[in-house]
Design a protein around this nucleic acid. Sequence first.
RNA 1: GGAGGGAUGGCCGAGCGGACGAUGGCGGCGGUCUUGAAAACCGUAGUGGCUGUAAAGUCACCGUGGGUUCGAAUCCCACUCCCUCCGCCA
Length: 429
Amino acid sequence: MLDIQLIRDHPETVRDALRKRNDNPAIVDDVLGLDSQWRELLQSVESLRAERNRVSKEIGRMQDKQARQAKIDEMRDVGERLSGLDGERREVEEALRAKLLWIPNIPDPTTPVGPDEGSNVEIRRWGSPRDFAAEGIKPVPHWDLGPELDIIDFERGVNLSGSRFYILKGLGARLQRALIFWFLDVHTRENGFTEFYVPFVVKRDMLVGAGQLPKFEDNLYHDVEDDLWLLPTAEVAITNLHRDEILDHQQLPLHYVAYTPCFRREKMSAGRDVRGIKRGHQFDKVEMYEFVDPATSYDELNAMVAVGEDLLRRLGLPYRVLELCTGDVSFAAAKGFDLEVWAPGQDAWLEVSSCSNCTDFQARRANVRFRTTPDARPEFVHTLNGSGLALPRIMIAILENYQQADGSVVVPEVLRPYVGVDVIRRALR
RNA sequence: GGAGGGAUGGCCGAGCGGACGAUGGCGGCGGUCUUGAAAACCGUAGUGGCUGUAAAGUCACCGUGGGUUCGAAUCCCACUCCCUCCGCCA
């Protein structure tokens, strides 16, 4: 959520931000209209209330029965006017808040301007894709490799749960678990992150706090009976971990990491990426999340990207880093970088991490603040999130990059202690 | 799932219709004393909104949402969460 004060004082800044995001700037005028209406009502309500408070105190001290009754009658009228006006105030206030929740974060000035992902800027590239042609191998996509190795079962996944669900079997399941363990171990042992295990379903307000609601309701799974929502990402749970808290400056920055499954309906992506395990309704992810002092948030963002890159290098997977443009940076973020890994089987780059600085946008929604000194006014923290990393896509990259001519797959060295074998072959059975 | 008890400021805890934004204690901050520290003593201290250049004024907040009343932390209703006991259970 944006600071209403910012919208009042610099509406053109906000309109400009919306245009750059390919969004309709008209909402700014809706907000300004509601806001001035609200302030007018608030002032009427408060002056009536001030009068009532004052007179009510007098009534408490009055001895003269008649005069007292006269004041009581007078205040009864005031009370009626007050409740009418206050009802109006509340309606306008709710309408205003509802509008505000639809406005995205303002992109940072350094975010490249562009309408869609075509305008993202590649800023780095690491590793060179393996020369399969030179080896005389035609790289096979994972959707063929997986079933061939008997480690991915698409058909039975669909039988259980419908399209976009799959099953990992044997070393496939083990490889995924190995990645989860290794990621968490690196983050907690080397990078100073604190590991969390969180509920996979949360209350509605938590989705609002993280910015998924109201705008992305279509993409979420939801239990109607208890109004509980499945996490689309661990970010939602962790954003709200310190909801309504005032943190001490010395605690910051907080580096958190959590492994969770993620659930997404993928309605917007109907028909896209239907093959393989690239885009399922359920996937696993290790998520980094940080609460930081606003002064350091951009440094922290760079550091977070570096952590993601380090994981990819140690896995030996060629990748590139994209600086997201205004049309592609996420709703809650002011700036973001994507990490994309090379998938030779499908001749494509796969997004395996998106690191974002959400500045005070989520902190304002979830009300997470801090004090610079013990008696300073509380300020909103900045929050960052980034995948570290998204699992099924890393598995795709491993399978496709490390495949051999006989259809077996070499396990990257860092994972061998976790997987227990050097090479994944089809089980003879 | 059944029965009972509870929710007050950073923490503990009083208040049960009118001078209560809330006694008191602890903790915090500032000071006195001290070579320094502790103790003791004195003082200070919540969050947010609106108006205002400011000084200041005003409103709201005692789990949440409604209601009664001229007036609600206090009375009524609903909900949420916590505790105790019983049942069930990974």
